[in-house]
Computed example of a mutant assay.
Amino acid sequence: MMEDMRETAPAMMQGMMAKDPDVAFVCGMIAHHTAAITKTVEAVRQVWPKCFPLAAHFGVLEFDGRHNPTF
């Protein structure tokens, strides 16, 4: 666990150097969550059968203020 923290700490600390505290928090959390997803995928790959695909789809839905979704 400490080794994992050593890997993610520099990116988290860099993100948290933003002047705006809200931006700093989000930037730090992006690095943290990216590392969590990566570690989860690595663990799943160790036990997931090779004949099954392992895929994830991430999407973002934005709104233009007029209740019209934009992709």
Rank of each mutant, 00 (worst) to 15 (best):
M1C: 12
D4P: 02
M5G: 00
M5T: 08
R6H: 03
R6A: 00
R6S: 04
E7A: 13
T8Q: 03
T8N: 01
A9R: 02
P10Q: 04
P10A: 02
P10M: 02
P10R: 07
A11K: 06
M12T: 02
M12N: 04
M13E: 03
M13Y: 14
M13A: 05
Q14L: 08
Q14M: 12
Q14I: 14
G15A: 04
G15H: 06
G15L: 04
G15Y: 05
M16G: 02
M16V: 02
M17E: 15
A18N: 06
A18S: 08
A18P: 05
K19S: 11
D20N: 15
P21C: 10
P21I: 13
P21M: 14
P21T: 10
D22P: 08
D22Q: 14
D22C: 06
D22G: 14
D22M: 14
V23Y: 08
F25M: 12
F25W: 09
V26C: 06
V26F: 07
C27L: 14
G28E: 04
G28R: 04
G28S: 07
M29T: 10
M29S: 07
A31K: 02
A31C: 05
H32Q: 06
H33N: 14
T34Y: 12
T34F: 12
A35T: 15
A35C: 08
A35F: 15
A36P: 01
A36Q: 12
I37E: 00
I37N: 00
I37G: 00
I37T: 09
T38E: 05
K39A: 09
T40M: 10
T40A: 01
T40G: 01
V41N: 00
V41T: 12
V41A: 04
E42A: 13
V44W: 02
V44N: 00
R45T: 04
R45C: 03
R45I: 03
R45S: 10
Q46S: 11
V47W: 01
V47H: 01
P49W: 11
P49Q: 02
P49G: 05
P49M: 04
K50E: 05
K50H: 03
F52N: 04
L54E: 02
L54S: 01
L54P: 07
A55W: 10
A55K: 10
A56I: 13
A56T: 09
H57T: 14
F58V: 15
F58G: 00
G59R: 05
G59Q: 05
G59N: 01
V60H: 01
L61T: 15
L61G: 01
E62A: 14
E62S: 10
D64P: 06
D64N: 15
D64G: 09
D64Y: 13
D64Q: 06
R66P: 03
R66G: 08
H67I: 10
H67S: 03
H67C: 05
P69E: 04
T70Q: 07
T70P: 02
F71T: 07
F71D: 03
